[in-house]
Amino acid sequence: MELMREHTEIASGAQLRFRAVPVDGVRKGLRLEEAYWDALAELATDLGVKPGQLISRYAAQYGENGNVTAAVRLGVLEGLREREMQRQATMSLQAIIGMVAGCPTAAFALSGGKKVLTYNPPFLSFLQARLSHLSPEALAAGLKLQLDIPFGALMSRLRNEPQTPVSAGYVIATNDRILRGRLNAVLANAVGEGAIIGYLAG
Protein backbone atom coordinates (compact mmCIF):
# COMPACT_ATOMS: atom_id res chain seq x y z
CA MET A 1 0.00 0.00 0.00
CA GLU A 2 2.81 2.39 0.95
CA LEU A 3 4.71 1.54 -2.24
CA MET A 4 1.62 2.25 -4.35
CA ARG A 5 1.16 5.65 -2.69
CA GLU A 6 4.82 6.57 -3.32
CA HIS A 7 4.47 5.48 -6.96
CA THR A 8 1.34 7.62 -7.32
CA GLU A 9 3.10 10.66 -5.82
CA ILE A 10 6.08 10.24 -8.15
CA ALA A 11 3.80 9.86 -11.16
CA SER A 12 1.86 12.96 -10.14
CA GLY A 13 5.06 15.00 -9.82
CA ALA A 14 6.16 13.90 -13.30
CA GLN A 15 2.95 15.06 -15.01
CA LEU A 16 3.33 18.09 -17.26
CA ARG A 17 1.27 21.13 -16.29
CA PHE A 18 0.69 24.18 -18.47
CA ARG A 19 0.48 27.51 -16.66
CA ALA A 20 0.45 31.13 -17.75
CA VAL A 21 2.78 33.13 -15.51
CA PRO A 22 3.39 36.91 -15.56
CA VAL A 23 7.05 37.43 -16.49
CA ASP A 24 8.34 41.01 -16.76
CA GLY A 25 4.76 42.24 -17.14
CA VAL A 26 3.92 39.77 -19.91
CA ARG A 27 2.03 36.51 -19.39
CA LYS A 28 4.05 33.58 -20.69
CA GLY A 29 2.84 30.04 -21.05
CA LEU A 30 5.16 27.34 -19.70
CA ARG A 31 4.78 23.58 -19.61
CA LEU A 32 6.65 22.01 -16.70
CA GLU A 33 6.41 18.91 -14.56
CA GLU A 34 4.32 19.42 -11.41
CA ALA A 35 7.40 18.79 -9.27
CA TYR A 36 9.15 21.76 -10.90
CA TRP A 37 6.14 24.04 -10.32
CA ASP A 38 6.08 23.02 -6.66
CA ALA A 39 9.82 23.56 -6.23
CA LEU A 40 9.62 26.90 -8.04
CA ALA A 41 6.91 28.09 -5.64
CA GLU A 42 8.95 26.98 -2.60
CA LEU A 43 12.11 28.73 -3.82
CA ALA A 44 10.19 31.91 -4.62
CA THR A 45 8.71 31.90 -1.10
CA ASP A 46 12.16 31.37 0.43
CA LEU A 47 13.53 34.33 -1.53
CA GLY A 48 10.51 36.54 -0.88
CA VAL A 49 9.66 36.99 -4.57
CA LYS A 50 6.87 35.93 -6.90
CA PRO A 51 7.31 32.86 -9.14
CA GLY A 52 7.22 35.10 -12.21
CA GLN A 53 10.11 37.17 -10.87
CA LEU A 54 12.11 34.02 -10.25
CA ILE A 55 11.36 32.78 -13.77
CA SER A 56 12.64 36.11 -15.14
CA ARG A 57 15.82 35.69 -13.13
CA TYR A 58 16.36 32.14 -14.37
CA ALA A 59 15.64 33.16 -17.96
CA ALA A 60 18.29 35.89 -17.72
CA GLN A 61 20.84 33.57 -16.11
CA TYR A 62 20.33 30.35 -18.03
CA GLY A 63 18.17 31.15 -21.07
CA GLU A 64 20.88 32.04 -23.57
CA ASN A 65 19.21 30.00 -26.32
CA GLY A 66 15.79 31.49 -25.61
CA ASN A 67 14.44 28.27 -24.10
CA VAL A 68 12.74 29.59 -20.97
CA THR A 69 11.44 26.17 -19.93
CA ALA A 70 14.94 24.68 -19.92
CA ALA A 71 16.23 27.77 -18.08
CA VAL A 72 13.60 27.31 -15.35
CA ARG A 73 14.44 23.64 -14.93
CA LEU A 74 18.14 24.47 -14.61
CA GLY A 75 17.46 27.37 -12.26
CA VAL A 76 15.23 25.29 -10.00
CA LEU A 77 17.83 22.51 -9.78
CA GLU A 78 20.54 25.04 -8.93
CA GLY A 79 18.29 26.72 -6.37
CA LEU A 80 17.51 23.41 -4.68
CA ARG A 81 21.22 22.52 -4.65
CA GLU A 82 22.12 25.82 -2.99
CA ARG A 83 19.34 25.42 -0.43
CA GLU A 84 20.56 21.94 0.45
CA MET A 85 24.12 23.20 0.85
CA GLN A 86 22.89 25.95 3.18
CA ARG A 87 20.90 23.39 5.17
CA GLN A 88 23.93 21.15 5.53
CA ALA A 89 26.11 24.09 6.54
CA THR A 90 23.59 25.11 9.22
CA MET A 91 23.33 21.56 10.54
CA SER A 92 27.11 21.23 10.50
CA LEU A 93 27.59 24.47 12.45
CA GLN A 94 25.05 23.36 15.06
CA ALA A 95 26.86 20.03 15.41
CA ILE A 96 30.22 21.79 15.76
CA ILE A 97 28.86 24.08 18.46
CA GLY A 98 27.55 21.03 20.30
CA MET A 99 30.86 19.16 20.06
CA VAL A 100 32.83 22.13 21.36
CA ALA A 101 30.34 22.88 24.15
CA GLY A 102 30.39 19.24 25.29
CA CYS A 103 34.17 19.07 25.62
CA PRO A 104 35.32 19.22 29.29
CA THR A 105 38.65 20.84 28.34
CA ALA A 106 39.46 24.07 26.53
CA ALA A 107 38.35 23.86 22.89
CA PHE A 108 37.32 26.08 20.00
CA ALA A 109 36.27 25.78 16.35
CA LEU A 110 38.07 27.62 13.57
CA SER A 111 36.78 28.15 10.02
CA GLY A 112 38.71 28.33 6.76
CA GLY A 113 38.45 32.10 6.94
CA LYS A 114 40.42 31.92 10.21
CA LYS A 115 37.30 32.95 12.09
CA VAL A 116 36.65 31.52 15.54
CA LEU A 117 33.19 29.98 15.12
CA THR A 118 32.65 29.05 18.75
CA TYR A 119 34.49 28.19 21.96
CA ASN A 120 33.53 26.60 25.26
CA PRO A 121 33.61 27.87 28.87
CA PRO A 122 36.91 26.08 29.69
CA PHE A 123 38.54 27.93 26.78
CA LEU A 124 37.25 31.25 28.11
CA SER A 125 38.48 30.34 31.60
CA PHE A 126 41.88 29.47 30.10
CA LEU A 127 42.12 32.95 28.58
CA GLN A 128 40.82 34.75 31.66
CA ALA A 129 43.39 33.01 33.87
CA ARG A 130 46.19 34.35 31.67
CA LEU A 131 44.62 37.65 30.64
CA SER A 132 42.85 38.57 33.85
CA HIS A 133 42.94 42.29 33.08
CA LEU A 134 40.43 41.85 30.24
CA SER A 135 36.69 41.28 30.49
CA PRO A 136 35.07 38.28 28.73
CA GLU A 137 33.49 40.70 26.24
CA ALA A 138 36.87 42.26 25.42
CA LEU A 139 38.46 38.84 25.06
CA ALA A 140 35.79 37.67 22.63
CA ALA A 141 35.86 40.88 20.60
CA GLY A 142 39.64 41.24 20.30
CA LEU A 143 40.64 37.59 19.98
CA LYS A 144 43.08 36.72 17.18
CA LEU A 145 44.17 33.12 16.72
CA GLN A 146 46.77 31.73 14.34
CA LEU A 147 48.23 28.26 13.77
CA ASP A 148 51.78 27.40 12.76
CA ILE A 149 50.40 25.20 9.95
CA PRO A 150 48.61 26.93 7.03
CA PHE A 151 44.90 26.19 7.30
CA GLY A 152 44.74 24.71 3.80
CA ALA A 153 47.59 22.31 4.53
CA LEU A 154 46.02 21.36 7.86
CA MET A 155 42.66 20.65 6.22
CA SER A 156 44.37 18.55 3.54
CA ARG A 157 46.06 16.38 6.16
CA LEU A 158 42.84 15.98 8.15
CA ARG A 159 40.82 15.14 5.04
CA ASN A 160 43.35 12.47 4.07
CA GLU A 161 43.32 10.96 7.57
CA PRO A 162 40.17 12.22 9.33
CA GLN A 163 40.58 9.71 12.16
CA THR A 164 44.01 11.10 13.14
CA PRO A 165 44.37 14.40 15.07
CA VAL A 166 47.12 16.77 13.96
CA SER A 167 49.31 18.49 16.52
CA ALA A 168 49.89 22.17 15.79
CA GLY A 169 51.24 25.22 17.51
CA TYR A 170 48.94 28.16 18.15
CA VAL A 171 49.32 31.85 18.88
CA ILE A 172 46.51 33.73 20.59
CA ALA A 173 46.87 37.50 20.48
CA THR A 174 44.61 40.04 22.10
CA ASN A 175 45.56 43.69 22.44
CA ASP A 176 49.02 43.74 24.09
CA ARG A 177 49.34 40.08 25.11
CA ILE A 178 50.37 36.95 23.20
CA LEU A 179 49.86 33.35 24.29
CA ARG A 180 51.60 30.40 22.66
CA GLY A 181 50.99 26.70 23.03
CA ARG A 182 50.07 23.41 21.38
CA LEU A 183 46.74 21.94 20.36
CA ASN A 184 45.32 18.84 18.73
CA ALA A 185 43.26 19.63 15.64
CA VAL A 186 40.50 17.37 14.33
CA LEU A 187 38.28 17.66 11.28
CA ALA A 188 34.92 19.22 12.12
CA ASN A 189 33.52 19.94 8.66
CA ALA A 190 34.93 19.06 5.25
CA VAL A 191 32.36 21.09 3.25
CA GLY A 192 33.69 24.14 1.39
CA GLU A 193 36.62 25.76 3.19
CA GLY A 194 36.01 23.39 6.07
CA ALA A 195 36.43 23.84 9.80
CA ILE A 196 38.53 22.32 12.55
CA ILE A 197 38.12 21.87 16.27
CA GLY A 198 41.20 22.64 18.32
CA TYR A 199 41.68 20.99 21.71
CA LEU A 200 44.27 22.88 23.72
CA ALA A 201 47.12 20.70 24.96
CA GLY A 202 49.00 23.46 26.70
Rank of each mutant, 00 (worst) to 15 (best):
E2G: 13
E2F: 02
E2D: 13
R5L: 12
E6Q: 09
E6Y: 08
E9V: 10
Q15L: 14
R17V: 14
P22K: 08
V26I: 13
R27I: 11
K28A: 07
K28V: 14
K28L: 14
G29V: 05
L30Y: 07
A35W: 05
A35K: 15
Y36D: 15
Y36Q: 09
E42G: 03
E42W: 10
L43R: 01
L43H: 03
A44C: 03
T45M: 13
D46V: 12
G48P: 02
V49C: 15
G52L: 05
G52S: 06
S56K: 06
A60M: 04
A60S: 12
Y62F: 15
N65E: 12
G66P: 08
N67Q: 11
V68T: 15
R73F: 01
R73V: 06
G75W: 03
V76M: 00
V76K: 01
E78R: 12
G79Y: 00
L80D: 02
R81A: 10
R83T: 00
R87G: 10
Q88M: 10
A89Q: 14
T90D: 12
L93F: 09
Q94T: 10
G98W: 03
F108H: 02
A109L: 00
S111F: 06
K115F: 05
K115A: 11
V116N: 01
T118Q: 10
T118K: 06
Y119W: 15
S125E: 15
S125L: 13
L127C: 14
Q128L: 15
R130Y: 08
S132P: 00
H133N: 09
S135N: 01
A138K: 09
K144C: 07
Q146T: 12
Q146V: 04
D148R: 02
P150V: 05
F151E: 07
G152P: 01
A153C: 04
A153G: 09
M155I: 02
L158Q: 06
L158K: 05
R159E: 03
N160V: 10
E161C: 12
P162L: 02
Q163H: 11
T164D: 07
V166F: 11
S167D: 11
G169E: 00
G169L: 01
A173S: 13
A173W: 00
R177C: 03
L179N: 07
R180Y: 13
R180A: 09
R182P: 01
L187V: 00
L187G: 02
A188W: 04
A188I: 01
E193T: 03
A195N: 05
I196H: 01
L200S: 03
L200I: 11
A201V: 11
A201L: 14
